[in-house]
Structures are given as C-alpha cells and as structure tokens.
Write a protein that binds this DNA or RNA. Structure first.
Lengths: 325, 325
DNA sequence: CTGAAAGCGCTTACAG
DNA sequence: CTGAAAGCGCTTACAG
C-alpha cells in the first residue's frame, strides 16, 4: 500500500496524490476529494520514514537529563521530572511533535538511531559534550536549567534563590525564629538552594541550621530529618520533594506538633494537602522548553538568534503545616 | 556528510563503508578499521531516516493509554503511570529501542508521522479501534491490563482480585473487624477492586463499607474519606494511590490515632514511609510489556503466536499504619 | 574480497 | 492543471 497504489486506483499520478493529501499544489477540489476518498478506501497511510528522509524533518523531539547518579532519573526529583516530561510530551503533541526520552548515554547508540528535529537537555553539565555533539549535527538544543557555558538556543529555569527566600520569608512571617534546612547533598539545585538559605540567614543575622544527606542512601533522609529536629528549630524547610513524610514522622516521634511546635514547608508538588509546599512548576518548565525548541526549529534561518530565556515562576501553596493557629 | 563522503575519503565504495560500520560482509580487519577511523575523523553519523526507510525498522516503540477523562494521564494513577513509563523507557533503551508516548487521539495525526516498530497500549478499551488500526498497519501491539476482546500479541496485568484479598487478609490478621474501602469511581481497576472487596466481605460474612468519589472533582477524595471514617470502620483500605494523606488528615480531624484506633493501608508506591502500601509494581509491568513487544518484533514470522501473557505480582509493604502495637 | 546498481516511499522542482 | 523524473541516504542482493 504505497502512494503508487493510490495513484493507480485513483487514475492520477503520484504527484497529484501527494499534493491532494498534503493540501499543496493547485488542484481542483474534485480531484482532491476523489484522491482522498480512494486513499481512505484503501486505508493508505503515508510512510513516515520516507517523508522524513525526503523532508529532513521527523517530527520527533528528544528529551534527556544528565543523570548525576547512575540511577535512571534522580530520586530526589522524580515527581518533578515526571511532571516535566508529562507536560513536555503534551505540549509537543499539541504542536504536532512527538517526544522521546533518551539517556545521556546508553550501551546501544540510540541517539544515532533516531532522527531528531531538536532536543531538550535537562540540567546539562557544563560544556556538555552531548550538547556539542547535537549542535554539530545541526540539532537545536534548549536546556532545562541554566546552561552555564554550554551554547544552547534557549533555556528555561526557576529563580532558585528568590524561591528559597520566598519560603523563608513566609516562615519568618508566621513567627519562626530558628529555621532549619534539610537538603539532599546530591540533589538538583542543592548548591543554589543552600547558598540562598545561608545568604538569607546572614542578611537576617540568624543562625543557619542545616542537615544534608545522600539521597541515594536508603534511610539517610530519615536520619537527617531526625538530626535536624534534634537541633531545636521552630520551623523547617525541606529543599527536596518527598521529604514531607520523613519530617512529619520525625516530628511525631519527638512529640512535636505541626504547626503548633514546628512549622513545616517543603519543595515539591504538594502530594500531602496539609503541608505547605513550594512548587517549581515543572509543568511550565516542560511546556516552555518545548515551545522555545519548536520556535527555533520552525524559524530555522531567521537570522542570528539570541538564546531565548524564560524564568519559570514558583508557587507557594500555604497549608496548615505553616499556619500558626 | 553522507556515506558517499566517507567512501570517497577512505578510497572505498559505499557498500564497504556500510559493511564496515555495521559489522557485516567479509572484510579484512584492516579495511574495517580504516573505514571506521575515517568515519570517526569526519564525524560521520548515518542517517536514521534512510536506514529506517531501507530496513523498515525504526527502533521506535509507541506507548499510549486510553484516557478515560480528558485529562492527560488519569489523576488517580499518575505515579503508577509515570513509573510504568519510566521503566518501559529504560527497558526499551536497554534493548536498543527508544520509546515515545502518544495520545490515544490528538488534533494532529502524530500516529501517522511516526514510524513505530510496535506499540504498548495501556488499559485498552474493549475492541479498541486504535489497536485494530495498528494491527492493520502491521504494528504489533502488547497491552498493559487485560485486553478484553481486543486482539493483541500479548499482555501484562496484575491479579487485581488476589491483590485486594491479600490486603484485606492482612488487615483482618491485624485485628480489623470492620474494614472500609475508599475508591475512585472513575479510577482504573475500580470495578475489579470493589468487586474483589465485596466478594471478600461476602466470604467472611462481614459488612461492606464503601465510599466512592470522582477523582476529577477537587476535594471529592477528602470528603469521601471523611464520610467513610464517620461510618466507624476500624480499618481502611484506600484503593487508589495518593489517598493516604487524605485518610490520615480525616483521621486526625476525628482524633483517631493510626494505627491504635484505625488501621490503614493504601494502594500506591508508598510515598509515605509510615503507611502500609500495596504496590502494583508498575516498573515490572512496563519492563515486561516492552520485553514481550520486542520479542514479538524480533521473532516476526516465527509461526503462529499465542498471545503471551505475564501476571505482574503485587507487593505489600507492611508499615506502622497497619501494625497493632 | 569489493563495487555498481537497485530500490525503500515519499516530496519537490520543473516541464508541458 | 497534471505528470515524469530526480533524489533524500542508506542497505542489500548480486555480479565480478
């Protein structure tokens, strides 16, 4: 079932079939309709591979993330990443593209086996070799997270420092005077988050109370939460998603009531509706990255582009856990 | 930078380049090495599109789910689905394939623009038209969840009824006599789950205490949790993931201590380490579905195949919330 | 052991 | 308004 069969059945040339089906050329509507009917009747589906080879466009976008650990997708940001991917997938489909998630590296050379119109690289390494390779091949790259010195066509990122300050300000407004920070040492944005916290503490002249842990180590988060509460904070900010249950558990074990004895706020998508949460809005990041990338792809050759940049707003959902009664 | 350039630079024919790079033909190692060196030096990357057109294999697997609501991916199973997709992606990559998530339907005909070697359909509708269309095009299909009367090459599924019974048995063993069930009416597997629960209650001669809610309606889960606890159960089983916080909140508001006054178990991946959870092991489902699919693709024409089937085991993680002190 | 040639199934100038 | 022909970049019989 190729275009030749349709042409034969419709009594026209393959050029006419192609034009009729793609809405191109100058054909009378009668021809167009006739060809479409015949194609439908035969159940003709154009070959995506042939179209891709001929046009040089596959309609496929890549999405990858530099995995710090060997884990597939970092544990500390699983929900964040999953939501980003979900949103990027949906946005790509809206724009007529499909999205394929690829590993930064893999045993098989999957990157070589897939024709990509563009790629989103989440949290690229500095001067990421993968990005350089893609650009050399003419594949546009947009990054999620600041690209550092890696040359990209655009990027999306949160203002991490401002985000941290907004949470700390909120806890302080709610009456906290000794705010502790729980952070995964190997988590994404941990550096910026901890730095922002320390700067805020310095500004206010209050002590920094931090505990860090290795997200990869089972039980490390739980232990760090316990250590942190033992240092007597009256509020705690959990910098990485999914730490709310561990902090709540640690509080319960110490008979600390939330929010009466301890205010609590966490990063994340707010799985627990009683815990104040700071969302990094991964859905926006994913959608915007795709929009930037598709813009680059479809405006190819529209002059020297400045790297496009969009700052993804964060959203603080204040819940019971940080509301003084 | 095509195969012709490499051939010219290496002083051989394109046949030899192709054979050398793909490890085919009978070439002396010296030729092979030489061609590879030249190709590397020129930074040659074979065109995936051309290879796909020529070989009829794209190395791409599709994954789709019938969305009951108009939501992208059902809310009641977001983490389940995300984990299934993550695992399917990783397994596909291990086997040399890439995976692309496609919607059951979309404004653009993305299905027609992507060449797929096979597709996984999660929770297909009965006699799913998409599956029929794919099979007509010669694209093998494996389903996640029982395919009903839809003809597929294989499927993976949990034994939902046995899974529900295992949780109820556990709660009964822990001393529960009035076990309530919280279920999303529009959730996946809700029918089987509720039926399994009622059958278990009938077997034991105990009353069925169920509350259902529409997952799409904000706050409905919270309200249903409250209604359920007001009916005085001494244990509760939450059939859909993510309901643990709502049940814990409802218990707290009623001054019911968990597990002292109320035993609690939930489906899901156990985000809260203090709550007993039944995992459906979506990672296994995703990995196995890909393995079945790749098996079908690579054994094409290996005789009349029975649909391959694998039952995905569930795993009950017993935590504090259902452990009587 | 190596190469010339056909052809995968389209789209797109171009000729009529 | 329509069609014959070229060609996208490979892989694969097949001939030498």
């Amino acid at each position: 079932m190729g275009i030749r069969d349709v042409a034969a059945a419709a009594g026209v040339s393959i050029t006419t079939v192609s034009d009729a089906l793609n809405g191109k050329g100058r054909l009378p509507d009668t021809t167009r309709v006739h060809v479409r009917e015949v194609a439908d009747r035969l159940g003709y589906r154009p070959s995506a591979a042939a179209r891709t080879l001929r046009t040089g466009r596959s309609g496929l976008l890549g999405l990858t993330t530099t995995m710090r650990s060997t884990e597939p997708f970092a544990l500390t940001e699983f929900a964040w990443f999953a939501e980003l991917v979900r949103s990027a997938t949906a946005t790509a489909l809206d724009l007529g593209y499909a999205l394929v998630v690829l590993p930064a590296s893999s045993p098989h050379d999957v990157w070589g086996n897939v024709a990509l119109d563009g790629t989103i690289v989440v949290d690229p390494a500095d001067d990421d070799p993968l990005v350089h390779e893609l650009l050399r091949r003419g594949v546009p790259v947009v990054s999620g997270g600041h690209p550092g010195s890696t040359p990209v066509y655009g990027w999306v990122d949160n203002d991490h420092v401002a985000a941290v300050r907004s949470v700390l300000d909120h806890l302080a407004d709610a009456g906290a005077e000794r705010i502790g920070l729980l952070a995964a040492a190997d988590g994404p944005g941990a550096d910026k988050g901890v730095a922002g916290y320390r700067a805020w503490c310095a500004d206010r002249g209050v002590p920094a109370i931090t505990e860090e842990y290795e997200a990869r180590t089972p039980g490390a988060g739980r232990a760090a939460a316990a250590r942190l509460l033992d240092r007597g904070p009256d509020a705690v900010f959990g910098l990485h998603e999914g730490c709310a249950p561990e902090l709540l558990d640690a509080a319960r074990e110490r008979a600390l009531r939330v929010p009466d004895d301890l205010l609590l706020a966490c990063c994340g998508e707010g799985a627990d509706p009683s815990v104040t949460s700071l969302s990094l809005q991964p859905a926006l990041a994913g959608a915007w990255a795709v929009e930037l990338l598709v813009g680059v792809i479809e405006d190819a050759g529209a002059g020297p582009l400045l790297p496009a940049q969009r700052t993804v707003p964060t959203r603080l959902s204040v819940r019971d856990s940080s509301t003084r009664r």
